[in-house]
């Protein structure tokens, strides 16, 4: 399980580098973010929540059942919009209002 950074989208703002609790993301010579410690990701999605250009995707490794789907998140006002995209490109969305408590 880890993250994938799309360097075509990354604008090098550095927010993901700043926030990762494991200091796993670094900047390359082009000034863009890259995942230096791919196997050390905890899956907290903090970096994804920071990226305003939607350049980071989260995925499960095959060792824990991953089959190429990705998870991403965008925040719009009070809403967190989570997107799961499977390997064929089908998208499923789950919208959570930040003001709503968990039912469980």
């Amino acid at each position: 399980m880890s993250i994938k950074i799309n360097s075509n989208r990354c604008v090098g703002c550095g927010r993901c580098i700043e926030v990762c609790p494991g200091n796993l993301i670094k900047r390359n010579i082009e000034g863009k973010a890259f995942m230096k410690h791919e196997k050390d990701c905890w899956g907290c999605t903090a970096c994804i929540k920071e990226c305003v250009v939607d350049a980071i995707d989260f995925f499960l490794g095959a060792d824990i059942g991953g089959t190429g789907s990705t998870l991403s998140i965008q925040s719009k006002g009070d809403l967190n919009i989570w997107k799961v995209k499977d390997i064929q490109g089908n998208i499923q969305e789950i919208v959570i209002n930040k003001k709503d408590a968990n039912k469980y």
Partner: peptide
């Protein structure tokens, strides 16, 4: 659905796993 949301709020890989598999 409530479980999917609760896990996204704390351990998102579990929801991804449910949906992906």
């Amino acid at each position: 659905d409530a479980l999917y949301k609760a896990y996204l709020n704390m351990s998102p890989s579990q929801t991804l796993k449910w949906l992906e598999t």
